[in-house]
């Protein structure tokens, strides 16, 4: 019987462990040193950080990435970046209205003449999308559609830490170098420019200079970065085909079409916080964590109440049970 119990108890455990199979090949995302304030049973979002995160999204990310599932009014929802208790209905929040109005959107309804006009957004409108459709996005980004960021937090394992690690995890400037793979040629006729070919240059990454996360793994060799592709150790993928070195010890990660975006000082925070790469990555990751699941703090606090309730009910039922069965041997 004991073995039966142990085995059956292991069912859930093993299955959960099995289905939470990690995506292979990429470095494990890490959270910022101070951790995430919204995690844990009583965690809450840091409103100032959410506001800065929105600023980073608005000024940097939103030029390529849409957030189709969010409306400007969400910014003023309870728990949101610009929530003001004075305006329980976010549609009335003047700050939210002003933020919405900064964005020109194509009206989803036609005007009297049947045409679609551009107009400033209202809080009820969804976030402005940078491209009218996926084909336009693909065409503008070398064939890769920048993913919608509405639920990216839930669409990646360890969402917030993934975004944070990816954005702040591009290798330092010093590891990149250029390599000439084919010399410039005049095509044999020095005077004829039509048969000239320019020098072919390749960007290579010296793997021995990579410092990935907190690991002290050392890699020897060169990673070749094709044009329009950027190496990131946190990107799921496979570096072996691009690696000049021992294929058994290729660096983790993969290549993505997004170049490094966060450069120190690229945004000027209105609250005076210094815009370091880590700070911006931290803020925008927290903003995306909120956007991906805005009700998560409500969920956890309601969960606490439910747990207390179920605990009380369990105790009461136990006594009821004992009392009813007290005269029956079973």
């Amino acid at each position: 019987m004991k073995a039966f119990r142990i085995l059956t108890a292991g069912l859930a455990g093993l299955m959960i462990a099995a289905s939470a199979h990690a995506a292979g090949g990429a470095a494990h995302p890490h959270e910022p040193e101070e951790g995430w304030p919204f995690e844990g049973v009583t965690g809450q979002f840091d409103q100032a950080s959410l506001q800065r995160g929105y600023q980073v999204y608005q000024e940097i990310c939103s030029s390529c990435h849409s957030m189709k599932l969010l409306s400007y009014r969400n910014l003023g929802d309870p728990g949101g970046p610009f929530y003001d208790p004075e305006y329980p209905n976010p549609n009335d929040n003047p700050f939210v209205k002003a933020i919405a109005a900064q964005n020109e959107i194509l009206s989803p309804t036609p005007n009297d003449a049947g045409d679609f006009d551009f107009r400033p957004a209202t809080p009820a409108d969804t976030f402005r999308s940078p491209y009218p459709n996926d084909n336009a996005a693909r065409a503008a980004n070398g064939g890769a559609v920048p993913p919608d960021l509405s639920v990216i937090y839930k669409a990646r394992h360890d969402g917030a830490s993934y975004v944070y690690s990816l954005l702040s995890g591009y290798p330092d400037e010093e590891v990149y170098s250029e390599r000439v793979v084919a010399e410039a040629s005049d095509g044999g006729t020095p005077d004829d420019e039509s048969d000239d070919t320019p020098a072919q240059v390749q960007t290579v990454i010296d793997a021995s200079k990579l410092h990935i996360g907190h690991g002290d793994e050392h890699y020897e060799g060169y990673l070749i970065q094709n044009p329009g592709q950027y190496y990131n150790p946190y990107m799921p993928g496979d570096t072996v085909p691009q690696f000049e070195g021992d294929p058994r010890h290729a660096p983790p990660g993969g290549f993505l079409a997004m170049p490094p975006q966060l450069i120190a000082g690229r945004v000027e925070y209105s609250d005076g916080t210094e815009a370091t790469v880590e700070q911006m990555a931290h803020d925008v990751a927290q903003f995306l964590a909120w956007a991906g699941e805005p009700k998560q703090t409500n969920r956890k606090s309601l969960g606490l109440a439910v747990m207390v309730y179920l605990g009380i009910l369990t105790i009461l039922l136990w006594f009821s049970y004992k009392r009813i069965w007290r005269n029956v041997e079973h």
Partner: peptide, 24 residues
């Protein structure tokens, strides 16, 4: 034990349990 069961129905613990379950 039908008598005991009837006594039981009026027992405080059963009433409390029922009330809490209903509340939930």
């Amino acid at each position: 034990h039908s008598e005991t069961i009837d006594d039981d129905r009026r027992n405080f613990i059963h009433i409390a349990t029922g009330a809490v379950a209903f509340g939930g």
